[in-house]
């Protein structure tokens, strides 16, 4: 689960021209325009490679950090069935992270380097995972809204011009629908329960609605890297287009649940056939991206601890494998 908006986080300018000649760049663009897929060993502009490394690795980090807010409820799921489902979903997120890390590695960056960039804070992950999961209803809201927003973004990424990324996204999208449906089913169950349970569902929607809309990234006018990504067919739709699509499909789902979307200005425009909504608090988005969300510190601490605590296991396995290989070579 992830959406765009991470293309804001890069410090270096990915559109900065590399050492390529005009002819090389034109030939590359011709391939892109013809909808040819670019494969790992094909020639590509440095800026294309940099953009992809940043986007795919940050997408992978999002999947891995995204395990934390949901993992928080694994031991407290309300039934064995819900627990098994949530465990399977969290495992899927780990799997998605691994598909994506391996796609990024085809571009010549090592797994260790990517992890180091995450742990040092150089690489970002999706802002949404810096919000806390305070009640069981949040697990429903995350599956429904956060995975829902992720699907909106990831489906066009299946057609991304970079082959390994596109194939990873196809795999991810096949699994993502289960995530969203299990979340909506949790919401349905709560909304069909006691008044208190329904209030929990409403509270979760209230807290996750705006952060979910922010997942699509800044408004198009303020989206720094969009134009080049669109030209390279890494990105197929703008942030605002995807956000609008998400709102249009999600509002009726909220109505079915009998819940109120926390936006007084939300209304359906019969002419455009789209919902109109009030402005997003972008200051909140930039604060969270900058590291000042409610859980940024906690998420990073937990990830660093996991990395440190596992170090001896990784090292022991490596040394054991070497010894075994040496023994079988000697035999």
């Amino acid at each position: 689960m992830y959406t765009q908006g991470l293309d804001q986080a890069g410090k270096s300018d990915p559109a900065k021209p590399g050492p390529e000649t005009r002819e090389q760049l034109d030939a590359f663009q011709t391939r892109i325009d013809a909808e040819e897929k670019i494969e790992a060993k094909d020639w590509m502009p440095e800026a294309y490679r940099r953009t992809l490394v940043r986007q795919i690795s940050q997408h992978a980090h999002s999947e891995i950090i995204g395990m934390q807010p949901e993992g928080n409820w694994l031991t407290r799921a309300p039934s064995l069935k819900r627990k098994a489902i949530l465990l399977a979903k969290v495992q899927d997120e780990a799997g998605h992270g691994l598909y994506l890390y391996s796609a990024a590695e085809t571009l010549g960056v090592s797994r260790d380097q990517m992890v180091a960039d995450l742990l040092s804070g150089k690489a970002k992950y999706s802002s949404i995972f810096n919000y806390p999961t305070l009640s069981w209803a949040d697990i429903g809201a995350i599956g429904w809204l956060v995975d829902g927003a992720a699907i909106m973004n990831q489906i066009p990424l299946c057609r991304c011009s970079y082959g390994p990324y596109s194939r990873a996204m196809i795999r991810v999208c096949k699994e993502e629908s289960f995530h969203q449906r299990q979340g909506y089913e949790i919401m349905l169950t709560l909304c069909g329960g006691t008044a208190e349970q329904k209030a929990m569902a409403q509270d979760a929607l209230n807290r996750f609605w705006w952060p979910s809309l922010m997942m699509f990234g800044p408004n198009d006018a303020n989206s720094t890297h969009s134009a080049q990504s669109m030209a390279w067919k890494i990105k197929r739709f703008s942030n605002d287009e995807l956000r609008q699509k998400f709102i249009d499909v999600t509002v009726p789902q909220a109505e079915f649940l009998g819940l109120t979307v926390p936006d007084d200005e939300l209304r359906y425009n019969e002419e455009t056939e789209h919902y109109e909504h009030s402005d997003i608090d972008w200051q909140e988005f930039f604060d969270v991206i900058a590291g000042n969300g409610p859980c940024n510190k906690q998420r990073m601490e937990k990830r660093r601890k996991a990395q440190d605590d596992g170090a001896w296991v990784r090292e022991a396995a490596r040394v054991y494998a070497e010894k075994k290989a040496a023994a079988s070579a000697a035999a």
């Binding site: 799997g95 598909y99 797994r111 699994e175 396995a317 490596r318």
Partner: peptide, 22 residues
């Protein structure tokens, strides 16, 4: 796709867990 593993046997089980959960 690909996986990291310390040895061949771990590569097989990691591949199973990563690519054949369904």
């Amino acid at each position: 796709g690909s996986v990291h593993a310390a040895d061949d046997e771990m590569a097989l089980t990691n591949a199973r867990d990563t690519y054949t959960r369904r």
